[in-house]
Every structure is written in C-alpha cells, then in structure tokens.
Write a protein that binds this DNA or RNA. Structure first.
Length: 355
DNA sequence: TCTGGGGTCCTAGGACCC
DNA sequence: TCTGGGGTCCTAGGACCC
C-alpha cells in the first residue's frame, strides 16, 4: 500500500444497489429559455460577453440550437461568436440558477434513500431500499422527470445502474431528456464500445497518453494489462482499470464538508499596474474571508494565484501555525505573496485568492 | 480563435520529528 | 565517517470535473 488507506467498511462490496444519476439538460440555457419564451428555437449561449469581438472568457452552457453551430461548453466566447453571431449571448445569472437548482434538488431528495448533489445541476440518488427492481426504478425515474417538468419546466437525463460510475455514464448516453438503464449483467456490453474519456478522471491528457498504447475504448482499457497501467499512471492507472470494468463501490454520500473557498478574476485586458493588481487582490481576499466567515470556518493556508499574459500560471501559499480570521494580517500576507509576481514586471491576466 | 470560475484529488520533494 | 525506518505537514504544479 503506497497511499490513501481507506477504511474497509466503506469499500466492502455490499448487497446489489440501484443508483440513479440525474443531470438537468443544458441547465443554465434551459432556465434562460424558460424565463424568456421568445428565445425558444433560437441559439442561446450563456457565458462571457463577446463584446462584438473583444470579449474574454468562455461559454458556460449553450442550448441545443447553439450546439448545431458547433458551440459547446468551455469554448472561448469569441470562437462561439464567430460560429454564430446571431446567437443570443447572456451573462451567467447564478442567483437565479441556484434558486431553481434548490427546488429541483428538493424534489430529487424526496425520492432517495441516500442523496448526493454533485454540482448545481447533477445528483446521485441511492434508491436501493425503496425500489425492489429495475422496472420499479424506471417508473420512479419517469416520475422524477414528470415532477421536474411540471414544477420547473425543465427536462433532465437519467441513468440507472448498480453503481455511481455506470449511472453517471448512463445519464450521459442519451441526451437530452434521456433515460438509460444498465443492469449488472449488461455493464460490460454497455461500456466496452464507449470512448475512454467517458470514465471519471480521464480527460484530454490521459486520453492522449492512452491512444498510442492502442487504448481508445473502455473495452480496450478493461482488457489491458493492469500492471502496465499501474506502471504508467501510478495508483490512478489501477483505478482506471477497475472503472473500465464497471467496478465502483463508492457510496452516495449525503453531505460533503468544503475544503476550500476561493475567488479569482481575469482582467478585461492584461494589467501591469501594481496598484491595480493589489486592489483586485484585496477585493478577492475580502470576498473569500466573507465566504469563510459565512460558513463558520477558519483557515490556516492562504494561496495566491497569478496567471501571466502567456497563460503561465503560478501559485504561492503561506500556512499559519494556527487557524485564524484576522483580515488585516491576511491582507499583509496576500501582498507578500503577490510581491514576487509584481517584481517580474510581466503583464498579469488573472489573480486569485484561496483560503 | 484563444483559453472563466469554483472546486477536488494526486504527485513529488523537502523540512522536520522521534 | 556515514546515514534506518516510521511518520506528519507544507509547497507547488497539474489533471480533472461542472
């Protein structure tokens, strides 16, 4: 054992489970469409302001009309703009989405033995106790869809499977307004043809490393020598191999305690003026401290993040001997952390503060 | 065509303790 | 004159997720 010992009782294979994963379709864009019926049928892009070609930032979410133009989440906003100048571009209205999310989560929670919200628009439901088989689980999923549709005028995609990993992949299988059920004896058949990056934790970089090894599908990953994977990717490699076989014993966990609070901001144009940068850092620090206090936490470590105009990104952190909240002290620390970056004389694109 | 903001987890090296 | 084995905590960077 090299790292991360886990208590066995939480990992031990228990009786078969039925897990549901719910993912609201194009959430931010769908809420905006609902609020503005005239948007219906038109491409809607929620994210940064393209500012007629000088905007900075990315697409947060877009509706399916916009996707027809090749626009997708994470795409630089100017590229989205180039794809479809006539699309409706909207800023991200978090307070509104949070409110809608809260109502949806309340509905979902009511249908679960164990419930885990994983993001503003996604959640896992362990329904093993209240549902005796997959037929009943399907009925429950259809009911959940109806309730969300009726209460919030939104559609969602649902996956049902014996574990979280497969349920999540299943909810993504048919979109929008999909419902995919994968029972234990269908897992291999379901996963094998899918691309490796469907697996939790495999992104662009890992996909690119797997390709020359002749691994592009989950099936190819599952049948690859696990010791070789471990050699190449460390302990992660072993996890990949397990997941490729559809094995996942992780539990639906009710509530997670946050480990950090942070705020960061990209300037509209890159900045070299030290005063301006310091003021921004001060403001971000104030927001972070407000968050920490509001949640009744304390913290020991403060991290400053700087991104230069060439996208090179660095972090600097300081840990105090004891947890504390003393805004004045932290301001001094933040300035100390910032100092070397200011001295470099390089134009700065982004600053961030994390507690 | 240029890359947000809020998070989590992992790795690796180093200081330090007994 | 050279250097064990078991640990913890801190820092920095990176991959990944929505």
């Amino acid at each position: 054992l090299e790292s991360n010992l886990c208590r066995l009782d939480s990992q031990r294979a228990s009786s078969p489970r039925i897990i549901i994963h719910v993912d609201v379709d194009a959430f931010f864009a769908a809420v905006e469409e609902r609020e503005h019926p005239t948007f219906k049928g038109k491409p809607v892009v929620v994210g940064a302001d393209p500012k007629g070609g000088s905007g900075r930032g990315v697409v947060s979410t877009c509706n399916y009309e916009a996707r027809k133009f090749g626009i997708y989440s994470g795409m630089p906003i100017l590229i989205a703009w180039a794809h479809c100048k006539d699309a409706i571009f909207l800023p991200v209205n978090y307070p509104l989405y949070r409110e809608v999310s809260f109502k949806i989560m309340k509905i979902l929670k009511g249908h679960a033995d164990k419930f885990q919200k994983t993001s503003i628009d996604e959640a896992f439901l362990d329904v093993s106790e209240r549902v005796i088989n997959y037929f009943k689980a399907e009925q429950l999923a259809r009911r959940i869809k109806r309730e969300i549709k009726r209460a919030e005028e939104l559609t969602c995609s649902i996956g049902i499977a014996p574990n979280k990993l497969v349920a999540k992949i299943a909810s993504d299988f048919q979109k929008p307004n999909g419902l995919t059920i994968v029972e234990q004896n269908n897992i291999t058949q379901f996963l094998s043809p899918l691309q490796v990056d469907k697996i939790w934790g495999i992104g662009q970089k890992t996909k690119a490393k797997l390709k020359p090894m002749g691994i592009e599908t989950i099936g190819e990953l599952a049948s690859y020598d696990s010791t070789k994977l471990k050699k190449k990717f460390g302990t992660l490699g072993f996890a990949f191999h397990q997941m490729a076989q559809g094995i996942d014993h992780s539990e639906v966990v009710e509530k997670r305690i946050p480990k950090s609070f942070s705020h960061e901001q990209t300037f509209d144009t890159n900045v070299s003026d030290a005063k301006l940068i310091q003021m921004k850092v001060d403001k971000l620090l104030e927001e972070v401290i407000k968050d920490v206090e509001r949640h009744e936490f304390t913290f020991k470590t403060l991290t400053l993040k700087v991104r230069y105009d060439n996208f090179e990104t660095h972090t600097h952190s300081t840990t105090l001997p004891f947890p504390a909240i003393k805004p004045k002290t932290f301001k001094e620390i933040a300035h100390k952390l910032l100092f070397p970056s200011l001295q470099s004389g390089k134009a700065i694109r982004l600053v961030g503060i994390k507690a």
